[in-house]
């Protein structure tokens, strides 16, 4: 059976089951802020969905009419960037949060609050994404700093 290495806390030698596609997807989502980007993108789509103007009107309408498309689109864009550029997840996460907060003011309370909340949560998840802390073996204690004799 063809196996690929996992990247989780159990180390690269752990073999994971599943079809080739499942294993690829699992490796993919574990190497980037997948869930945060997903919530951020969904929030952006909600903002676009609940803005007040059709695209044709927004194209001729200045920021008041286009805010839903620009800010919602920015949230989706930053979600995509977070997926392809996980090294910059912190920067993209902050920008996603800012876009979601601006959408609350600029576009129908950010998709009637739903889009902004999803965007802020997703952006925070993208911002906080990183390596997992190594798990401690059961029963072990972490020695306080400087306590070693």
């Amino acid at each position: 059976m063809n196996m690929i290495a996992s990247t989780d806390r159990l180390g690269p030698n752990r073999r994971i089951p599943g079809t080739r596609a499942v294993r690829w997807f699992r490796a993919y989502r574990r190497t980037r802020p997948f869930w945060g980007a997903l919530w951020l993108a969904v929030g952006g789509l909600v903002v676009v969905k609940f803005n007040s103007y059709p695209l044709g009107l927004a194209m001729t309408g200045g920021f008041n009419r286009s805010a839903g498309y620009i800010l919602g689109g920015a949230m989706v864009l930053f979600a995509g960037v977070a997926l392809v550029s996980p090294l910059y997840a912190r920067l993209v996460g902050v920008l996603g949060i800012l876009a979601a907060m601006a959408a609350f003011i600029g576009s129908n309370f950010g998709g009637f609050l739903v889009g902004s909340v999803l965007g802020i949560v997703g952006g925070a998840m993208v911002w906080g994404w990183g390596e997992l802390a190594p798990s401690r073996p059961a029963g072990s204690r972490v020695a306080p700093a400087g306590s070693e004799a």
Partner: peptide, 12 residues
């Protein structure tokens, strides 16, 4: 990755 981030920010 740096290019993608710059393009994204520039687009917005």
């Amino acid at each position: 990755q740096r290019v993608w981030v710059l393009l994204g920010v520039l687009t917005v």
